[in-house]
Amino acid sequence: MRGVLAGFAAIWVVTLVGYLVGRYELLGPSAPTVLARLVFFVAAPALLLTTLVRSSPGDVFTGALAAFVLSTVLVAGAYLAIMLLAHRKKDRPDAGTLTVGTLAASYVNAGNLGIPVAAYVLGDVSFIAPVLLFQTLLAAPIGLAVLDVTTGGRRPSPRALAMLPLRSPLTLASATGILIATTGWRPPEEVLRPFDLVASSAVPLALLALGMSLRGSRPFTAGEDGRDRYTAVALKVLGQPLIAYLIGRYALGLTGPALLAAVVTAALPTAQNVFVFASRYDRAVSLARDAIVLSTIAAAATLVLVAAWLG
């Protein structure tokens, strides 16, 4: 229990430092974007690669991943059902808005927050790699395809949608690490040392970037999408981890670290990518932004409770 609390304390303290750096613009107004890109394109891929090449496929594709994927699908369906029932037909959100809300309720922040949580709380970054693969290879292309069909925004071709995962360095690094691990060959430590050096910066930089991104948010401001926003956040931080627990514990028989990994990954807050998708197609931008901030704040408590309960 003490180790769990210490791990989360480190995460939130560094995140708070990032918020203060962003609040007072100590690194300039463009720093959050630059830092996030550095993590996304360099540090986090190095961390995933070095972790996965030292693991085995059995350590990656586990029951924890199955519980996470099933909880994601069920929560997405629950959000859609609630929205269709809660809104009268004449004021029902359009398909694009429903898609953004569904992603806000089920698409987790596996990068900026998932990697630090996996490192400090789960003790193994390999738990987060298959989550990243699932979201990048399946969830994101499906969501973008629906937005493409239902909105009048810029329409990428089917080929562009199919190539989307290949443009993600996190996905490429994860896939490369898993591929090397399946061969049974392990690169010499001298070869991995430069990657390890870069990888060591991934967690602190990701947390600083996360904290800096929270500056200027007003998630509690009343608006037309208030009900949709709170529904998405409740499903994200409460519904999804509960479903993952029920599936993992009673359907898959998971216990110990595997069950903890399933529930913790499901309890991660909404990913910032959802805001990117919403902005690109100009659908429910405020809903996406506020859901990200609210779920990130709420996850500070729910993740600790989950880890204390199952850890």
Rank of each mutant, 00 (worst) to 15 (best):
110 A>S: 15
111 G>Y: 07
112 N>V: 07
112 N>G: 00
113 L>P: 03
113 L>M: 06
113 L>V: 02
114 G>H: 01
115 I>K: 00
117 V>C: 03
117 V>I: 10
117 V>P: 02
118 A>D: 05
118 A>R: 01
118 A>G: 03
119 A>W: 01
119 A>D: 06
119 A>G: 01
120 Y>E: 10
120 Y>M: 11
121 V>S: 01
121 V>K: 04
122 L>E: 02
123 G>W: 03
123 G>P: 03
124 D>H: 00
125 V>D: 01
125 V>I: 11
127 F>Q: 06
128 I>N: 03
128 I>F: 03
128 I>D: 00
129 A>G: 07
129 A>R: 01
130 P>H: 05
130 P>R: 03
131 V>P: 03
131 V>D: 06
132 L>P: 05
132 L>C: 06
132 L>A: 07
133 L>T: 03
133 L>Q: 06
134 F>M: 00
135 Q>E: 14
136 T>R: 04
137 L>E: 00
137 L>H: 00
137 L>M: 14
138 L>Q: 05
138 L>W: 08
139 A>F: 14
139 A>C: 08
140 A>N: 02
142 I>P: 01
143 G>W: 10
144 L>P: 02
144 L>V: 14
145 A>L: 11
145 A>G: 13
148 D>K: 07
148 D>H: 10
149 V>S: 11
149 V>H: 14
151 T>M: 11
151 T>V: 05
151 T>E: 06
152 G>E: 14
154 R>S: 14
155 R>Q: 12
156 P>T: 12
158 P>E: 02
158 P>G: 02
159 R>K: 15
159 R>G: 12
159 R>F: 09
160 A>S: 15
161 L>R: 04
161 L>Y: 11
162 A>I: 12
162 A>V: 15
165 P>T: 13
166 L>I: 12
166 L>C: 13
167 R>T: 15
168 S>E: 12
169 P>D: 07
170 L>V: 10
170 L>M: 15
170 L>G: 04
170 L>K: 04
172 L>T: 13
173 A>F: 09
173 A>S: 14
173 A>W: 02
173 A>M: 06
174 S>H: 09
174 S>Q: 08
175 A>R: 04
176 T>G: 13
177 G>L: 05
178 I>Q: 09
178 I>P: 03
178 I>A: 10
178 I>E: 04
181 A>S: 15
181 A>L: 05
181 A>D: 09
182 T>Y: 06
182 T>I: 11
182 T>E: 14
182 T>D: 13
183 T>A: 07
183 T>N: 07
183 T>L: 09
184 G>W: 09
184 G>R: 08
184 G>L: 04
184 G>K: 07
184 G>H: 06
185 W>N: 06
185 W>H: 14
187 P>A: 14
187 P>N: 13
187 P>E: 10
187 P>Q: 09
188 P>F: 02
188 P>T: 09
188 P>V: 03
190 E>G: 09
190 E>Q: 12
190 E>L: 08
190 E>A: 13
190 E>I: 08
190 E>T: 13
191 V>L: 15
192 L>A: 05
192 L>V: 04
192 L>I: 09
193 R>K: 11
193 R>D: 13
193 R>Q: 14
195 F>K: 03
196 D>N: 12
196 D>R: 13
196 D>I: 01
197 L>P: 00
197 L>E: 10
198 V>Q: 02
198 V>L: 15
